[in-house]
Amino acid sequence: MNILELKNVTKSYGNVHALKDFNLSVAPGEWVSIMGPSGSGKSTMLNIIGCMDKPTSGSVSIDGIEVTARSNKELTEVRREKIGLVFQQFHLIPHLTALENVMVAQYYHSLTDEQEALKALERVGLAQRAKHLPSQLSGGEQQRVCIARALINYPALILADEPTGNLDEDNEKLVIELFQELHREGHTIVMVTHDNEIGELAQRRVRLEHGRLTQIA
């Protein structure tokens, strides 16, 4: 069974089609890069996969759950249970430490476990920075906190939106190496990126233009 299935997905805003008859399947353990120019539909597709928006038509299944007709509350539950999100902008809570930011994801999922959260930070090489606030961390360190937060609830799918977009070259390398390691461990990754070199690291590259799938490599 595929982790992700999009079938004939269309998203319309009036007469404008942000996505048109889009189809995509992602197998367990696969790393897929979603690429395309600005305005191609990448963000729309990411919001639909991340259960933050609904398609106008078509169907979306995540880990065997058909989510298209679900209520907003149910979509929130699916996102919390099945998806680990890594954003370009980090979205860390500024007055919480790195450890507490990871534990927030636990809180909304089930129960907090400080030792488990600390292990997640150790997993991304940040155990020694657990008590630091986001303002005390570099961009690369903040992004690694985001990855630890995304992993803490063992999601079926890691969904990454331009995860290196705000990083310098050195931190970009560290974060991408971490994604490569996660992939080797069997994690399923869908990554939106404008960077061709990063896109080439994935097993499969999907290109969007004007809301339509134009290339699969």
Rank of each mutant, 00 (worst) to 15 (best):
Ile62Ser: 12
Glu30Leu: 12
Leu75Tyr: 04
Gly58Tyr: 11
His17Ser: 10
Asn72Leu: 12
Gly29Gln: 00
Glu77Gly: 04
His17Trp: 06
Arg79Tyr: 03
Gly50Asp: 10
Thr68Tyr: 00
Trp31Thr: 13
Ser61Gly: 03
Leu46Pro: 05
Ser61Trp: 09
Ile34Pro: 00
Pro37Gln: 09
Ala18Gln: 11
Ser43Ile: 00
Ser43Gln: 01
Gly64Ser: 12
Thr56Phe: 00
Gly39Leu: 03
Ala27Leu: 12
Gly64Leu: 08
Gly14Trp: 06
Asp63Val: 01
Asp63His: 12
Val78Trp: 13
Ser43Trp: 01
Thr10Val: 04
Leu19Pro: 04
Ala18Tyr: 06
Asn72Ser: 06
Gly14Val: 07
Lys11Asn: 07
Gly58Met: 13
Pro55Phe: 06
Gly36Phe: 04
Thr44Gly: 06
Ile48Gly: 07
Tyr13Asp: 08
Val9Asn: 04
Ala69Asp: 15
Val16Cys: 05
Gly50Trp: 08
Ser59Ala: 03
Ile49Val: 15
Thr76Ser: 10
Ala18His: 08
Ser57Met: 09
Gly41Met: 03
Ser33Asp: 08
Ser57Tyr: 05
Thr76Leu: 01
Ser12Phe: 03
Pro55Lys: 08
Ser61Asn: 13
Ile49Met: 10
Pro28Glu: 14
Ser59Thr: 15
Met45Ile: 05
Arg79Val: 02
Lys73Trp: 12
Pro55Asn: 05
Lys54Val: 10
Asp53Tyr: 10
Gly50Leu: 10
Ala27Tyr: 13
Thr44Tyr: 08
Phe22Val: 14
Ser38Arg: 00
Val32Gln: 02
Thr68Lys: 01
Ser25Pro: 04
Gly58Asp: 13
Ile62Phe: 03
Thr56Asn: 03
Lys54Phe: 04
Val32Met: 07
Val26Ser: 00
Asn47Gly: 05
Ser57Ile: 05
Ser12Glu: 12
Val26Gly: 00
Thr56Val: 01
Asn15Gly: 01
Pro28Gln: 15
Ser33His: 07
Lys11Val: 09
Ser43Thr: 03
Glu74Asp: 15
Val32Asp: 00
Cys51Ile: 06
Ser59Asn: 03
Met52Pro: 11
Thr44Leu: 09
Lys54Trp: 02
Asn47Asp: 07
Thr76Arg: 02
Thr44Asn: 09
Thr68His: 02
Ile49His: 09
Gly64Val: 08
Val32Asn: 02
Glu77Trp: 09
Ser40Tyr: 02
Ala69Trp: 07
Gly39Cys: 03
Ser57Ala: 13
Pro28Phe: 00
Gly50Cys: 11
Glu66Gln: 15
Ala69Ser: 15
Glu66Gly: 07
Lys42Ile: 05
Gly41Phe: 01
Ile65Gln: 15
Leu75Thr: 04
Gly64Cys: 13
Ser59Phe: 00
Gly39Ile: 02
Gly29Ile: 02
Ala27Cys: 07
Asn47Val: 02
Gly39Asp: 06
Ser33Gln: 11
Ala27Arg: 15
